[in-house]
């Protein structure tokens, strides 16, 4: 077996991109400053030197047209990875995403497809404020025809990026920028992670914490603190929201009889409500308490150093919620 290496989230995804571009000449990278500049967050560093300007396309600041072109490229045989620098800018691509990319397979009765990855960043913690922080994965998950991936650690992110590029449908890939420097063990050959499979990050018997993206890291921190008091939390990262590995979530709830769903996006009409409903519908008889939901405030993301950390859940709030649920 090849020794695992310790890579940051950013480095791991970059290696995944390199591997896939190397393996398949149809893979293209399209976005703003993704070429010679190597990405605003150094997330495409070095790729341009290897793969050049025919496969790595630096676009003008023209998200609707450039993303529409990525869809056309995908329909014509390419496998574009399209980068939206900040998740908030995804709104500029929404028509192309919802009315073209998501519907082509269905409209064509399976005769055409759009094998592309829309990669974007999100996250709070750097005071980037209302128009540079949000992740619209819940919106995307509401659109039939899209797949939605929200990884929480380097190995999953890299393996899922490889799988997303190989997938024959439009896959939206949401990266929390605050995780970019986070290190983790990654097998040298970067194994594929199947889209649609949840991962149990920590086993436990007292409560199930279902946590999205970076929230999974907060949930692990909370679980560690709770363990000191003899409370064993099971932490599950769904990894992909569409398709959602419902059975893995339900199995855990049937074991622990309690669940908290934790998300870093506004709570109303979001992912937590969907997952809580699934548990209520399919595991109600196993529950000892109502499913609890933790989400961000139903407000835009404030820029203030005082207000921003209050906006979304963190380890302390998760810990407190578990104690409340168990009391």
């Amino acid at each position: 077996m090849v020794e695992p290496r310790v890579l940051s989230f950013r480095e791991a995804v970059l290696e995944a991109l390199f591997l896939e571009m190397h393996a398949d000449p149809n893979v293209m990278l399209i976005g703003e400053d993704v070429g010679a500049a190597g990405g605003v967050f150094k997330q495409t560093e070095g790729l341009f030197k290897t793969f050049g300007a025919t496969r790595i396309i630096d676009t003008p600041i023209s998200e609707p047209g450039a993303f529409g072109m990525a869809i056309g490229a995908a329909m014509a045989g390419a496998r574009p990875v399209f980068e939206v620098m900040f998740g908030d800018f995804m709104t500029l691509c929404m028509d192309q995403l919802v009315n073209q990319a998501a519907k082509v397979r269905y409209m064509s009765n399976g005769r055409a497809s759009v094998p592309l990855v829309l990669r974007t960043t999100m996250g709070t913690g750097a005071n980037l404020g209302p128009q540079h922080s949000q992740g619209f994965y819940a919106w995307a998950a509401h659109v039939p025809g899209l797949k939605v991936v929200v990884p929480s650690n380097p190995a999953d992110a890299a393996g899922l990026m490889r799988a997303a590029i190989r997938d024959n449908d439009p896959v939206l890939f949401f990266e929390d920028r605050m995780l970019y420097p986070a290190k983790g063990a990654v097998d040298a050959d970067i194994p594929l992670v199947p889209i649609g499979k949840a991962r149990v990050l920590r086993e436990g018997s007292d409560v199930t914490l279902i946590a999205i993206g970076r929230m999974a890291q907060f949930a692990l921190d909370a679980a560690k603190r709770l363990a000191a008091d003899g409370i064993e939390a099971e932490v599950i990262d769904p990894r992909t929201l569409v398709p959602l590995d419902q059975e893995a979530l339900l199995q855990s709830v049937r074991k622990t009889h309690r669940a908290i769903v934790i998300d870093g996006a506004p709570r109303s009409y979001g992912v937590t409500g969907e997952i809580a409903s699934i548990i209520n519908e399919d595991a109600f008889d196993w529950l000892d308490a109502p499913v609890m939901r933790l989400g961000a405030a139903d407000t835009p993301v404030p820029i203030s150093r005082t207000l921003e950390p209050l906006w979304r859940p963190d380890a302390a709030r998760i810990e407190k919620a578990v104690r409340t649920l168990l009391s």
Binding site: P25, N26, M28, T54, R55, I57, P64, G65, A66, F67, G68, M69, A70, I71, G72, A73, A74, M75, A76, G77, A78, P80, D95, Q96, N99, Q100
Partner: peptide, 16 residues
């Protein structure tokens, strides 16, 4: 809506 689809298909054709 079709305009970027054809333009993007052209981009793919050039890449290959």
């Amino acid at each position: 809506g079709g305009i970027p689809l054809a333009a993007g298909a052209a981009l793919a054709a050039r890449a290959r």
